[in-house]
Design a protein around this nucleic acid. Structure first.
Lengths: 208, 208
DNA sequence: GCGTTTTCGATACGACCCGTAGCGTAATGG
DNA sequence: CCATTACGCTACGGGTCGTATCGAAAACGC
């Protein structure tokens, strides 16, 4: 019952170099071709592997692109700039910079669209992309509470709800600005947005 | 030079019944099959028309789905519930109800994803879907100003920027909540969101 | 009525991609 | 050395795409 690392079997191990080459080739293909014209045959040729190698590791185009795009969000860090406002602006600017890249634009929205009819895909996106972003919200709030910028929340359930709300507002606004309005989420926009968000949160907490 | 209604030519006119049947069939196919498995042949069969008739009116799957989804947003109205907060809550709830429908979920995000590499498609989405939503923001602000709930903005450029910001925040948050977090934007969520938004706007306006 | 013009339905077609199967070879562990 | 697994390569049936072609149908001007 050694369920952990079931790759402890014998035989030829899978090439980790192929994995990274395939994911990099997927992002390159997303940049040049976009989601709809991306074919697995093309990705395999770019990565220098056979098409069958792709199907051995991913169920299809959806799962492959999720993993390829997820790596883009690995570089997301919560900066420590001294104040909650500056921290939020910093992380939002990072998020906007990633979303401005063409491989993220064409890939992310497409797999989200597919996930509306594929629960397993939605769960994959949630674990490898969304949850990683959401943790930044929790970290930022914890840091602001130690700084004394935010009061400690007594009700954990209410705290979770507001964290979800903040996350949807922040991520949704940046995505909508970048992809739908098709205008850059630059420093000026981020400053205006952060101000509205912080004032709203501070004011909405006290009443009710 | 009768550029208006160039359909003043002779010959057999296009069947308007076919148009409505095709768009309805597209939405039905979106519900049953989703975006990726939707084929134009299937839509044509459902609508009782030939596939060539589809290609005579739409360039492809993208444009067809944009038009089919755009009709869903025609029912969007700005209610007059007496206060700015209630009006916002009302229109956000309508918006959330449309986004909760499966044909909107699978169709809208997919065409937005495609629009990242197709400027003409993005413009089509902007005109037939986005601009119609954005007008509600402007109407709501104008009504709130006549009520005295919001001050008249002296700088028109600044007013346009804040309107864009509000629109991205509202639409983005609802879309993210519905499609990414996959949780309903119900009355409780809308109330919390509206409170944060209104407090943030009122507070952020006075300073700077 | 009659010819012109345009649309419509039906069918067929080449091109492309999908996902899988088969096979021989290569690389590990026991 | 042998079992086991991964890999590259090729080939295949099935499906969709977008277009072309044809005859029939429906409107218009005369």
């Amino acid at each position: 019952m050694q369920s952990r690392t079931p790759a402890a079997r014998s035989g030829r191990p899978r090439s980790t170099a192929a994995d990274t080459a395939i994911l990099a080739a997927t992002r390159a293909a997303l940049v040049e071709l976009g989601w709809s014209k991306l074919t697995l045959q093309d990705v395999a040729t770019r990565a220098g592997v056979a098409k069958t190698t792709l199907y051995r590791r991913w169920a299809g185009k959806n799962e492959l692109v999720v993993d390829a795009v997820a790596e883009l969000f690995d570089e997301l860090r919560l900066p420590d700039l001294g104040s909650l406002a500056a921290d939020i602006e910093g992380v939002v600017l990072q998020f906007a910079a990633i979303l401005a890249r063409p491989e993220a634009k064409s890939g992310l929205m497409a797999v989200v669209a597919e996930s509306t009819r594929d629960d397993a895909l939605r769960e994959r996106i949630r674990c490898s992309i969304v949850e990683r972003q959401k943790r930044l919200v929790l970290e930022g709030r914890a840091r602001a509470q130690t700084r004394g910028e935010l009061p400690a929340e007594p009700d954990p359930e209410q705290a979770a709800r507001t964290a979800d709300l903040i996350f949807d507002v922040v991520a949704g606004a940046v995505v909508h600005r970048t992809l739908v309005s098709a205008e850059p989420a630059d420093g000026e926009w981020v400053r205006s947005f952060t101000r509205v968000l912080l004032v709203g949160l501070a004011g909405a907490e006290q009443d009710s």
